[in-house]
């Protein structure tokens, strides 16, 4: 337990709206270890991005964050002052955003923006910071790194900018990196490069990595553990092998059925889809949030909140009334259909 770089217990994010309270994230608990990649998977609007902003302490002002525990490297960051949080951000944990095209300030050179990050947190000279920037730019695969320092963001392609963003989060050697859909805005060919780069760097620098994405192909390749989110809750969590090999929650099963798997999915076979839409998260909610779209829904599903329970293997858990055996049968049927 002591190896947890990030420990989150019962994290909730509510956003007050004129029509009621929007329960964007509810009762989220997870942890990330040093040298481990946790993937948080889910559809747009399921609360993944708010989760990352909640950990960073960068939520919009009106959002309300509560939790039983929020610890980074053993330090309580739930009750930390804003000034302490700004010391932590960029130093102990960094974040990479979805839009590399707009995430860098157009008015300053990338060298300026890289050096500024380090000088904010470490007592180094400009020259030392510049050397570190060059070292990291080379690490993230940018050629002619020293001359790139004087370039402006608009002179770089999206892929290069995302590499610069990655280098920027590494400037102070953080314990944890949160990457929020880091490849969504990039060309498909670049996506794989950036992901592999992230995975590689994470191992090399022995950091924790939270990879937030809606791209399951990505997850299968780089994640150690996976948390599947639906409508603000984690519905299934486990190692990548567990979640992909033995999906237990009907939503996870449905998701995996939507993806063609090379060698497994037969040519001409129809891919699955999940009928219905995500429920509104405004107002009081009870029962299983997936019940409306679930093929296996029972009357009990809507009655009371469904708790998180362990599946048959250690480290694998899910949020459903079905037993692991029933789920396995359902999964088998899906595969056969």
């Amino acid at each position: 337990m002591e190896n947890h770089i990030l420990n989150v217990r019962n994290l909730t994010v509510d956003i007050p709206l004129p029509s009621g309270m929007l329960h964007a994230v509810q009762g989220l608990s997870f942890h990330v270890d040093r040298g481990e990649t946790l993937a948080i998977v889910g559809e747009s609007g399921c609360g993944k991005s708010l989760t990352s902003l909640a950990i960073m302490g960068l939520l919009p002002k009106k959002a309300i964050r509560t939790a039983d525990l929020l610890e980074l490297a053993g330090e309580d960051i739930l009750n930390a002052t804003e000034s302490r949080m700004s010391d932590i951000r960029g130093s102990l944990m960094g974040m990479i955003f979805q839009e590399p095209m707009t995430s860098l300030n157009p008015a300053y050179t990338i060298g300026n923006q890289l050096i500024e990050t380090m000088r904010r947190h470490r007592p180094v000279s400009v020259d030392e910071a510049r050397d570190r920037a060059v070292f990291l730019l080379e690490k993230v695969g940018i050629t002619a790194a020293r001359s790139r320092l004087t370039q402006y963001p608009h002179q770089l392609s999206g892929g290069l900018r995302q590499r610069v963003m990655i280098a920027m989060t590494l400037m102070c050697g953080p314990d944890l990196i949160i990457a929020d859909e880091p490849t969504t805005a990039l060309d498909v060919t670049i996506q794989a490069q950036i992901l592999l780069l992230l995975a590689e760097l994470q191992k090399e620098f022995d950091m924790g990595l939270i990879l937030i994405t809606h791209d399951l192909g990505v997850v299968a390749r780089v994640a150690d553990r996976v948390a599947v989110m639906y409508a603000g809750q984690v519905v299934e969590e486990g190692s990548a092998t567990q979640v992909f090999g033995r999906p237990t929650h009907p939503y996870t099963q449905g998701l995996l059925d939507c993806i063609p798997i090379p060698g497994k999915t037969e040519r001409g076979k129809h891919l699955g889809s999940i009928p219905g839409i995500v429920p509104s998260l405004v107002g009081n909610l009870s029962g299983c949030r997936f019940a409306d779209r679930c093929q296996h829904a029972m009357t009990d599903c809507s009655a009371a909140d469904v708790g998180f329970r362990p599946a048959s293997e250690v480290g694998h858990a899910y949020r459903c009334l079905l037993t692991p055996e029933q789920s396995a049968q359902n999964a088998a049927k899906l595969g056969a259909a």
Partner: peptide
């Protein structure tokens, strides 16, 4: 690579 459909989430 499969994407989860950006289902009609009402904003």
């Amino acid at each position: 690579m499969g994407m989860i459909g950006k289902a009609g989430v009402p904003t």
